[in-house]
Design a protein around this nucleic acid. Structure first.
Lengths: 228, 228
DNA sequence: TGTCTACAACTTGTATACAACCTCTCCGCA
DNA sequence: TGCGGAGAGGTTGTATACAAGTTGTAGACA
């Protein structure tokens, strides 16, 4: 049997799922791309069965769609659905602020600081995928601070459903500005966490999300999102 | 091949998933029950493959857990998780009230009235599963009134995660009271919908959920849910 | 009698063969 | 030249055989 060409955490299907999800959210698989079960099976060194499990989970997440006889395609982001997801995430941010017990360790704070530094270093490089990776890592770390487990799962799911849109428009935006926005959000959240002021953290996140929404709006033909 | 003994909508895996989910939520498969893939495959007249797909989806929903070499077991409701789900649902009810466009047709209103009538008829019968079925139907119908699609999916998911608890304690409660509670909730919601007053609907739902929570608390050893 | 081991009978996880289906191309034909 | 149908090649969906793992039990042995 062919040796697997990709290093996985050897946790089987879950690792494949995470890898494919990241590839989609980092636009390595752009919207409309066709994913071949056979090709993925060869690449990961497994049969089609585990690949299909991962793809079906991605289909539940709304990231791909499978059609018998045609193939499995990365879904394009539906604007109406995007609008609804963002509206919901704005509401959920407040809930996160209310329901989080703020169980943050010093290690977490250091990691966030390192992420802010990593983002700042990207200012000269112009590496959209790298910046997106930092932001994903940032979001992942903040997710761990959500004390309510079902809310955490829901927030993660919604994040990965909309994570592509910003990255997709990143090349058309002003690079330095976007880097600064990310750095500012991370550092502002960091300050809030140090004071254990989750309401402040929620406010910061909300502000940046609304601002990002505005930029996305201005770069799409016609406003797709009605700002409150 | 043996003919399938269960009438499915012939939509394949989705129908099997729904059927199994209902069996779990209506306690036909009580917590701790073992589900055999082979037995289910025989019953539904398919191979293990579609059965496994449905079971994996149920595992994502947190309703079952599979262990290699052991089997697939219906999960017992974890009290801490239940508490968190209820706390979240209370918050989401308000969101539903805010974000719903109240696209209700007269047919929907008639169906809700019929459900209230159906519940009232059960007052003499003492049929817990029937009452639960009515309440599930009621919830399903209200779900269609949620304009925000991701919120609707989330609300459904959370509902089915906690639907068993009330039914599980129903035999120990006062039957007539529980019937009256269900009838009152449906009719109160109906009144709110007729006035297109979604905030009132949310208030009713919230009130009944808190009351139901209190009853559940009183029938479990020690209060598991801190009421606000 | 108690304990430990080997094994049989089950389970889920994986790989593979086959069926159903779609799409594009090529060839015959008007 | 335009059109239409058969077919090849590819895809996902399903069934089945096999691998890996767990558990209870029977039996040997101290």
């Amino acid at each position: 049997m062919q040796q697997r060409s990709t290093t996985l955490g050897s946790r089987g299907v879950a690792a494949i799922y995470t890898e494919l999800r990241d590839r989609i959210c980092l636009l390595r698989y752009p919207p409309g791309a066709m994913l071949s079960e056979n090709a993925l099976a060869e690449e990961f060194g497994v049969s089609r069965t585990p690949i299909r499990q991962a793809l079906q989970r991605l289909e539940f997440d709304g990231l791909v769609v499978s059609q018998r006889g045609v193939g499995t395609m990365v879904k394009t982001v539906d604007l109406q659905y995007l609008k609804e997801v963002y509206a919901l995430r704005l509401k959920l941010i407040d809930l996160i602020g209310e329901m989080s017990p703020a169980r943050i360790t010093d290690d977490d704070l250091e990691l966030l600081a390192a992420l802010a530094g990593g983002a700042r270093e990207l200012r000269e490089t112009r590496d959209p995928e790298g910046l997106a990776r930092v932001y994903h890592r940032f979001n992942e770390e903040l997710s761990r601070a959500i004390g309510n487990q079902p809310l955490r799962e829901i927030a993660d799911r919604l994040f990965y459903q909309t994570a592509r849109v910003w990255l997709q428009l990143l090349p058309e935006m002003t690079w330095e500005d976007e880097v600064d926005y990310v750095v500012d959000e991370i550092e502002s959240v960091l300050q809030g966490l140090r004071r254990e002021d989750m309401q402040s953290v929620a406010g910061v996140r909300r502000k940046h999300m609304v601002l990002c929404l505005g930029r996305i709006n201005s770069y799409l033909e016609g406003p797709i999102l009605a700002l409150p």
